[in-house]
Amino acid sequence: MSQHKITVTVNGQAVTQEVESRLLLVHFIRENLDLTGTHIGCDTTSCGACTISLNGRTVKSCTVFAVQANGGEIETIEGVAQGGQLHPLQEGFWEKHGLQCGYCTPGMIMSAKHLLAHNPDPSEMEIRQAISGNLCRCTGYNKIVEAIQYAAAKLNQPTPEEVPA
């Protein structure tokens, strides 16, 4: 089995490590980097608890090898809040009670972030479809949808510079 030295930018920070070829990206993130916000919920690429962003697209990090991320950019839930400010999605999940046990939440937020980056004003059905690769067992999804709608509305508000004086 081969060992590989990989360099990955994770939440803006470059890290270099030696990894076994079979190391799953999710284990690299959780165990090698101690970023435990990314979770594991299944073996079949079904649940989406391990969803992260790799090179600008969300992927299920249990179904990518760490070595494949070499040279790439990763964003995990730990990188979503910037400068101590919660992201509007994080605010939305909190405001709208979009989580209960919190286990699926990081993956949900990553999927929602990907959606809003590509479709800033999604319909309810588009939101439901966009998070259909992420299973939640607690919330019944209504409030997750509301949380994403909250974030979309907030992100679509004109920034102060755009507001005419």
Binding site: S111, H114, G133
Partner: peptide
């Protein structure tokens, strides 16, 4: 095909 996150990869 599959689900949206899987389709990204």
């Amino acid at each position: 095909i599959a689900d949206p996150v899987v389709r990204n990869r």
